[in-house]
């Protein structure tokens, strides 16, 4: 059975580019694209929710 990928939504108009989500994602799923965070490698996401929990700007929603 294929593993179900999560949905990671980044609300660009809320993101202030602090790097917290990118730096502390344990599997390096995210990257900075200019001043906003973006998803680089969705397959690697282990759905730990740390990025959603730590984003100070309510800019990431992870739906496992």
């Amino acid at each position: 059975m294929e593993k179900k990928l999560p949905t990671i939504e980044i609300i660009e108009k809320y993101c202030k580019g602090c790097h917290i989500c990118v730096e502390f994602c344990p599997t390096k799923v995210l990257e900075m694209k200019g001043f906003v965070a973006s998803v680089k490698n969705l397959e690697a996401c282990i759905k730990c929710m740390q990025c959603e929990l730590r984003c100070p700007d309510f800019a990431i929603k992870v739906t496992p």
Binding site: K13, Y14, K16, G17, C18, H19, I20, P56, D57, F58
Partner: peptide, 10 residues
Amino acid sequence: LPHIWCPGCG
């Protein structure tokens, strides 16, 4: 939202 706090403010 967005709120007024600076980038990375806890």
